[in-house]
């Protein structure tokens, strides 16, 4: 479970702007606890993806400091930091480096000078864990979007990172592909006690997180448990975000005179509550 005392990522008063653009982050600070699933939501241009890239050192800070697992993100530590973080990006096509599935999974290992025999073992294990071993000789053109994202995840598992960042990793997938990928990450997370940061537009994805953080124009405007965040549908709507299905259902029910005790529940809680309501009548 999430250890709230241990911050695996600390973002301290960072400032950043893209060249010739206004300041995106101004003195932003946040912490990510070890073992938690943190969802960062916000509309387009709110700085979600930029934040992920800053944490991985893919772009360089103007001011402030980011510490990942005790290491300050800077030029000397950059490869050590990247060893600890696995990133899955949005476009399945654009992060497939290898000519075939197994070459792609091996790419990160090749960069880390892993010995060949060892590499073959790790590739096999990683591909099996995402259920893509049978596809190892396929070329990317013959895979679906969801399968390519599975391969991307296998490539990351192979490097056994402590942190996985999903940068809108499911936004180009269909609902089934999205569910499968999230289930897979959840499973890997609990097996290896990983920390997951998921950057998403998908409210249902965020609803399953341990903690949700709303970013708007480079500022954190709210954070808390999904229950807390999604019980304020007005706030979500104001910044152009939707609320989860159950929250909408609760609002619709209350308009028809059925008052639900809590303003937000997840699927199972709401189903249970409705069942109780019906059986009481």
């Amino acid at each position: 479970m999430a250890d709230l005392t241990n911050n695996i990522i600390q973002v301290n008063n960072i400032s950043y702007n893209y060249p010739e653009q206004p300041l995106l982050f101004d003195q932003l600070s946040l912490n990510v606890h070890e073992g938690e699933w943190l969802a960062i939501i916000g509309q387009n241009g709110s700085g979600k993806s930029t934040l992920a890239r800053l944490i991985d050192g893919l772009i360089v800070l103007n001011q402030g400091q980011i510490v990942v697992d005790g290491l300050t993100v800077n030029d000397q530590n950059i490869y050590d930091v990247r060893n600890r973080i696995g990133m899955v990006f949005q476009n399945p096509e654009d992060q497939f480096v290898g000519a075939t599935v197994e070459d792609d999974v091996a790419f990160g290992l090749e960069n880390r000078l892993i010995e060949r025999n060892e590499m073959h073992k790790i590739v096999e294990k990683s591909l099996k864990s995402v259920g893509m071993w049978a596809f190892r000789e396929r070329i990317p053109a013959n895979l679906s979007g969801g399968q390519k994202q599975r391969v991307a995840i296998a490539g990351i598992i192979a490097l056994s990172p402590k942190i996985i960042i999903l940068d809108e990793a499911t936004s180009m997938l269909d609902p089934r592909g999205r569910k499968e990928i999230l289930k897979l990450v959840q499973q890997i997370k609990s097996q290896n006690n990983l920390t997951v940061i998921s950057i998403t537009h998908d409210i249902d994805e965020a609803a399953n997180a341990d903690r949700v953080l709303i970013l708007n124009h480079g500022k954190i405007i709210d954070e808390g448990t999904p229950q807390k965040i999604f019980s304020q549908p007005d706030q979500l709507q104001r910044i152009g975000l939707d609320s989860p299905y159950t929250a909408k259902l609760i609002t619709a029910l209350s308009k028809r005179g059925i008052t639900v005790g809590k303003p937000y529940m997840n699927d199972e809680e709401l189903i249970k509550w409705i069942q109780q309501l019906v059986s009481a009548k």
């Binding site: 890239r53 090749e110 000078l113």
Partner: peptide
């Protein structure tokens, strides 16, 4: 996008790599 993804997976230069 590809170069970002490659960097994120620890690619620095093509000389110092092992081969799968």
């Amino acid at each position: 996008n590809l170069s970002t993804a490659m960097e994120a997976r620890g690619f620095s230069d093509s000389e110092h790599r092992t081969k799968y």
